[in-house]
Design a protein around this nucleic acid. Sequence first.
DNA 1: TGCACTTTGTTCGCCTACCGAACAAAGTAG
DNA 2: CTACTTTGTTCGGTAGGCGAACAAAGTGCA
Lengths: 418, 418
Amino acid sequence: MDFQSPDQGASPAEEARGRPLVEVALESIWHSREISRADLARKLEVSRSTASELAAELLDTGLVAEGGDGPSRGGRRPILLRFQDEAHVILGVDMGASHVAVAVTDLRGRVLVWTEEAHPVRDDPSGTRALIIRLADEVLGRVPGAARRLLGIGIAVASPVDHLDPLHLSETVLPAWKGRSGFELLRERYGVPVFVDNDANLGALAERWWGGGRGLDHFTFIKLATGIGAGLIFRGQIYRGATNAAGEIGHISIDPRGEPCVCGNRGCLVTFVGGDALVRKAETLVAENPGSLLAERCISPGSIEEAALLRDPVAMQLVREAAQHLGVAIAGLLNLLNPGAVILGGSMARLKEDLLVPLRETVVRRTLVSSVAASEIRVSDLGPQGIALGASTLVLSLALANPALFPGMRGIAAGEGR
Amino acid sequence: MDFQSPDQGASPAEEARGRPLVEVALESIWHSREISRADLARKLEVSRSTASELAAELLDTGLVAEGGDGPSRGGRRPILLRFQDEAHVILGVDMGASHVAVAVTDLRGRVLVWTEEAHPVRDDPSGTRALIIRLADEVLGRVPGAARRLLGIGIAVASPVDHLDPLHLSETVLPAWKGRSGFELLRERYGVPVFVDNDANLGALAERWWGGGRGLDHFTFIKLATGIGAGLIFRGQIYRGATNAAGEIGHISIDPRGEPCVCGNRGCLVTFVGGDALVRKAETLVAENPGSLLAERCISPGSIEEAALLRDPVAMQLVREAAQHLGVAIAGLLNLLNPGAVILGGSMARLKEDLLVPLRETVVRRTLVSSVAASEIRVSDLGPQGIALGASTLVLSLALANPALFPGMRGIAAGEGR
DNA sequence: TGCACTTTGTTCGCCTACCGAACAAAGTAG
DNA sequence: CTACTTTGTTCGGTAGGCGAACAAAGTGCA
């Protein structure tokens, strides 16, 4: 046996130096929303004199401004430094399997404008690209000064994303696109950086910043739709695996004797709770129960959700069974990963307890340690905007962590280059 | 919906400043084994003058020494700085369910002395503690100057470890221990820091540093024994989950209609390939096939492994079936986590291809993307010493990352306090 | 109201870690 | 032997951060 050293990850040079203090200060002020120089000094563990200098530097960038005095704590009243949430806007794009949604947000993740349109994304690359630009122009046009203030564009796609070559799309999942996303067009049209990631990952990111994942360093977001994907947050960050293929929870087998799946396996989770499987089962059940609300119109995951909200027995049975199957997979996930929470988003999130009760029941019966069984399972409360918001959040997180990536933010760490 | 900021992880103060340059230099020299000042400067991206100063400081600690000249590259020959692997020794303890093993290693992970003894650890806390001390005294006695050079002690336990209170043991897994490990004794007896972690985690760590996981930032180590545990390496580090319960792969259900398990679930992986399950199945098979090698003596996971190595048909059938069941669980793991490799250790690792061939076959049939199916599945080549080596490696990794934890290394970053 | 005490924010000199230029030492290549 | 490299050291310079001191602006109690 030959003993060698483990290869090193990041270059030691990067590891050694901390980030520039201004950047940390900026991020810190963003987190605090408003903070005095003295508090900033305490938070960053630097002297007050240094905090003062940092403040001066940040005031120059326009990202921070002085906003009134804070309450006295027994001495002189502090001058509050306030992060300027409106200094820039971000465009978030959610490109699903059969729809496109776009949102304009500010730097606090507030959705200023949002719009959505159904489209056969999977089969129509050029039409989809045109649609994205049309919707983007529309929403940006509705925000005053958006063009000037646009910081960057984030795009969520329902396909694995190689984050070394993010403009390339998986040819297995979206064959008609032939691997070419064409998102360079956006960069050229708007003149800002463009970032792309998988939709389940970005859903998870949105939960981490604005939803049920706040304060949790380890949790899992599960997106229920035509396909089923998981976004894994580890140590507060998106985990992508060795080849950016992590999170394919839909193709975990929960029954070795189950129906064959397109992937070659048997009894995959999608064959029980995927969009197509649900519709197929619904059609069978409706044939037996013609009185169901579902008999009235074309059956889709959306119509099943609505029927269940109206307490249609057939729809509710479908949901209950789906929850139980989901429970088996989630129990396995809890045993293996021990996340702090599991957050469900997508087509069934609006059902809340109708989905969660049978799900939790299955999970408790199927997990080892009580602490794991006690893991919180919730539905997302970010609604249909969640994914687009996540795309926007990707840009925001990068801007705060590494302002140098954004020429539009010049003034802070301008000399960084690359 | 109320928008708030995500909580911050590490304090911004820690985040801002990089590690002290001396520490980075020390780690860098360890990785290089020997390196000139000029090369060190290039590697750390500092000036040669700074590298010279760092070298001077490290020479004082005794952890680095000048060792001869290197080859010229067209100019003056460099003086090589050599990391002193023998400057300290580390004690690694592997406390399994039914045995104790201890190893003394140097700072390069070389096992200098090793010994092992069977013991009913689970049921005999005080006897186990005495045994550990006896074995530790014995192995340390066989290494000249060990007492003086001892840097720290690492302990691997077959139980989840809360890494805020590492001396506490799980009362569910080891009820007889009543939560108290008593490892403080070791700290007092030898006067060095003691660190504890779960055995599968430390097996994974050993693979990351010295085994099949070198250079892989994302992989999974699976320990097959009485229980089945997984050690997950994410971003080059051990992943422990939200409550240190991650890696319980043994209680993932691979068949919802399978036999009930002690954990309350049905068809858990352990009910197919756990030590007890294997022995039970072997007994059934032996009754039908009295000619098997297994009929000759008491059946245990170890004897099954040996019979299979001797190509006993009954044992090989057991192994094949176990591999297939393991394959189902591993396929799920690959879909979900997309690790760069899966490394198998423990009671069946010696079987190599006899285990891997049927396993890989199952996995390929059961994973979605070809890139995931191509994920390497290997057996560990660290042998029975792997876990104790991992315990030792835990101490080594901490010493290199944070020398301030080790009073015995004083001279470097001595003022750190804590 | 006055006085003692706090807290904030700024100024200014100082200290330390690191840099760059210069140089001697020790090699290679023709 | 000469021209050119590379290594390692020396030494003065610089910039980023610190601490002490101080003015400004508050609180609380007699």
